[in-house]
Simulated assay, not measured.
Amino acid sequence: MSKYVLITGVAGGIGSATAQLFAEHDWHVIGVDREDEDIEGVDHFIQADISGADASAEIFEEVEEEEGRLDALVNNAAIQICKPVVEMTPDEWDATMASNLRSVFLGVRNAHSLLDPGGAIVNVSSVHAVATSSEIAAYAASKGGLLAFTRALSIEFSDDDIRVNAVLPGAVDTEMLRDGLERDYAGTGTTETVEEKMRALGIRHVIGRVGQPEEIAQTILFLADGDRSSFVTGQALTVDGGATARLSTE
């Protein structure tokens, strides 16, 4: 019998790679995104803004009608606004929190009754939850909140036999990373191309390169599949090529 997974932000780099990987392992994939995209591996696509309470409720009502249950929920959708805190507007701050944190609260609240015992929730946080950089404070705060929320959920949902874990990707070759490098949010003032910046960023990793979306997808699959990670809950699994292992003073 197929297992059912719902993945938010399915049109993004990590989301689409995750959908394809789950499909390759014979999962039935429900994909949600604000963009209307044809994503390989997605069996049931829902176009919606998951940060809205009504929209979130409607998503899971549709899943209940069409699939009837879930084995895993992958909260992957996120936005990133790169600018100094003093230049960020309240609306931009609120939009970041709504997309990256409020949407997860709404999703797990609405998905809870659909998740079978033995099910799993995987929250895609970020290394910015534990070590961050300049001009990305809202994103870091939202991902840090998601990490704390993950721990709390693992306790609350333990009696329901639902495991809750987080993945903390480092620099991964996605549109979000490339947009950040294009904006030069680190304030280097350089005229390097994005590709040059990508290579320089890779050198700063212990592994010597940035990650690929498929590598994060493998970690998500591991945490979602109860046959692979049945004794893992409340954890934050960092997948960053060793970036946070190295002292910045080296």
Rank of each mutant, 00 (worst) to 15 (best):
F105M: 02
L106T: 04
F60V: 02
C82K: 07
I121Q: 02
L106C: 07
G145V: 00
H112A: 15
N76A: 01
A48E: 05
Q80H: 13
L146H: 01
V108A: 07
A95L: 08
H44S: 06
I81S: 10
L70C: 02
E64H: 12
A78Y: 06
N123D: 03
A138Q: 04
A140R: 06
V86D: 14
V130M: 12
Q47N: 13
V108L: 08
H112E: 15
P90R: 05
P117F: 10
G145F: 01
A140S: 15
P117C: 12
E64D: 15
I81D: 10
R109L: 11
T132A: 11
C82F: 04
G144H: 00
A120C: 06
A95E: 11
E92Q: 10
A72D: 06
E64I: 07
C82E: 09
S142A: 15
D49V: 01
S126P: 12
A138T: 05
I79D: 13
A78I: 11
E67G: 12
S126R: 01
V130G: 07
L114R: 03
A140E: 09
H44Y: 12
S51Q: 08
A55G: 12
V63L: 06
D54M: 15
A53I: 15
A141H: 08
S103D: 03
G107W: 04
E64Q: 14
P117Q: 11
I81P: 07
I59A: 07
T132K: 05
A57K: 10
I59K: 08
A141C: 14
I121V: 13
H128Q: 13
F60W: 03
D54L: 14
Q80F: 13
L147F: 06
N76W: 00
N76M: 04
I79G: 13
A129P: 03
N100Q: 05
F60N: 03
L146W: 01
V108C: 12
E87V: 04
I136R: 04
D54S: 15
I81N: 10
V108T: 14
R102K: 14
S133Y: 14
N100E: 05
S125I: 00
G118P: 11
L101V: 05
I81G: 05
N123K: 03
T150A: 01
V124Y: 03
E135D: 15
V86G: 09
H128P: 10
D54C: 11
D71M: 01
R102V: 11
I121H: 02
G52M: 09
A140G: 12
E92I: 02
D71E: 03
V74W: 08
Y139N: 06
G145T: 01
E66G: 11
P90A: 04
R109P: 08
S51E: 08
L153S: 00
A95F: 05
L147E: 11
F105R: 00
W93G: 03
N75R: 02
A138W: 01
T89M: 02
K143R: 04
I46F: 04
